[in-house]
Design a protein around this nucleic acid. Sequence first.
DNA 1: TCTCGATTGACAGCATACTTACAATATGGA
DNA 2: TCCATATTGTAAGTATGCTGTCAATCGAGA
Lengths: 169, 169
Amino acid sequence: MPNKSADITMDAVYTAPGYLFRRMQQIAVSIFVEECKAYDLTPVQYASLVSIRTHPGIDATRLSAVIAFDRSTLGSVIERLEAKAYIERKSSPEDKRTKLLYLTRAGAALLRDIMPSVQRAQARMLQPLKPADRRTLLALLTQLVDLNNEASRVPLRAEDALEHLGKSN
Amino acid sequence: MPNKSADITMDAVYTAPGYLFRRMQQIAVSIFVEECKAYDLTPVQYASLVSIRTHPGIDATRLSAVIAFDRSTLGSVIERLEAKAYIERKSSPEDKRTKLLYLTRAGAALLRDIMPSVQRAQARMLQPLKPADRRTLLALLTQLVDLNNEASRVPLRAEDALEHLGKSN
DNA sequence: TCTCGATTGACAGCATACTTACAATATGGA
DNA sequence: TCCATATTGTAAGTATGCTGTCAATCGAGA
């Protein structure tokens, strides 16, 4: 529809990859929040909880590397999760600078309960495409995100999370 | 790489479409800002300027529909663009509630000058993919964004911009 | 051991992106 | 004409996502 006389130059926006990525992210968040509104949890808070469950006792800096999330922003995310009593922060005896993160019982329960809603949200995002196209899009996107990892300000460092295991193991 | 014992459940994050969309948006903004840092312009500010150039005299509400951008947020974006003297706001004589938006000479010049950088940024986002894969990804993404339009809180309404033309024509 | 450089969490500041609310204004129907 | 309803810009509040900076702490080498 963006193609009536006056819209000719708008294609400089509508067909740009950057615009499509922004728009899709906008839509994805909207769908996630809608499906999960009963739990009042955002996509980032969800990803943080999953990471803490997977890596109990991780510290904030490593958590930010594991979900490719800015260290500064993560501070407030953790604050909110702690205020909702889904996680606990304990000072590390080995390193007085760091605070270790753990799921509370409530946090673990929430994560279990919210799973179906999250699955529904993820499915809805791709629903309009044919199944084969969904697979193609996901494959290309996975590839592109991986190859562009270093281009972002906060590259994903999944292996960072394993460092603290070396100490406690 | 996210596949060492402890990472098993992290796949609930890494393979989710929502995570990939967030990550890709993050990367896209990072590349855009880097390429355009000489002009100190954000992706959203760029899209706003292009829209105002395409639709001179558009008001803020219609502009938000044209770039699928929240009306509240747009207020501050416009403020910043006005502070940088790239746009002008004029009260409408026909409707005292609205303020009409126009590019200044400086805004038009900036838009001309920044084009090569924007093109470079858009190209870099897809660079890692093979040309055929870039086309496939763009086609699928365009399709998905279009079909999911109503799912977002601020659906794109490109045709809204044409309303004010009816009055002035 | 002492000291220099790196790391950590916290903070301030800016820019999206959304919510609700509100006053001013516009509009259509009784 | 008058009035209920809708629209417009704005503002306050919350939540990412980034830039810096800073003090406290750590760790490695002289």
